[in-house]
Amino acid sequence: MSRHDLTPLDPDTVSCVIVGWDRPLGSFFTHVYLTDDDNEFDAPTFEIGTDFREVTDPAAAIDLASMYAKVPDDMSATLANDAAREGTCEAPAVLSILSAAATPTTNTDGWPCPF
């Protein structure tokens, strides 16, 4: 997983903006934390890329981030390089298929945890 902290455009309203690549989900992500969000679990106020292969183009993650933070010109290339270097994990797809089956035919007990 990669993580890049960006500089908020307005630090009075935005406390943190993060973009990156999540290998197990095979998705780029953006998390935006606003200063007035009193979320007791410290969850992002806005986020994308938290579902399996939800964001496959770094431009989508950058579009959200650019509304709240200064995004370096080379961020798209940086995120694409992160994804190419780290690759993807196919286990979530297998597990999703297995959970949809009434009686799984494959025993996954001995499989190593991919992340």
Rank of each mutant, 00 (worst) to 15 (best):
M1V: 09
R3Y: 03
H4N: 08
H4P: 00
H4L: 11
H4C: 06
D5Y: 08
L6K: 02
P8W: 04
D10T: 08
D10H: 10
S15Y: 00
C16W: 02
V17L: 04
V17G: 05
V17Q: 00
D22G: 00
R23L: 06
P24A: 05
S27L: 09
S27I: 05
F29M: 06
F29K: 06
F29L: 08
T30R: 03
Y33G: 01
T35V: 14
T35W: 01
D37W: 05
D38Q: 12
D38M: 10
F41Q: 14
T45Y: 07
E47F: 07
E47I: 06
I48H: 04
I48Y: 02
G49W: 00
D51G: 14
F52D: 07
E54P: 01
E54W: 04
A61R: 04
A61V: 05
D63W: 02
S66T: 10
M67G: 05
M67Y: 03
M67S: 10
P72W: 01
P72V: 00
D73F: 04
S76Y: 04
A77R: 12
A80H: 04
A80S: 15
D82F: 05
A83Q: 13
A83G: 06
R85N: 11
R85V: 10
G87E: 07
E90P: 00
E90Q: 12
E90D: 13
A93L: 12
A93Q: 13
L95A: 12
A101V: 15
A102R: 14
A102P: 02
P104L: 01
P104Y: 05
T105P: 00
T105R: 13
T108V: 15
G110K: 10
G110F: 09
C113Y: 12
P114R: 08
F115W: 09
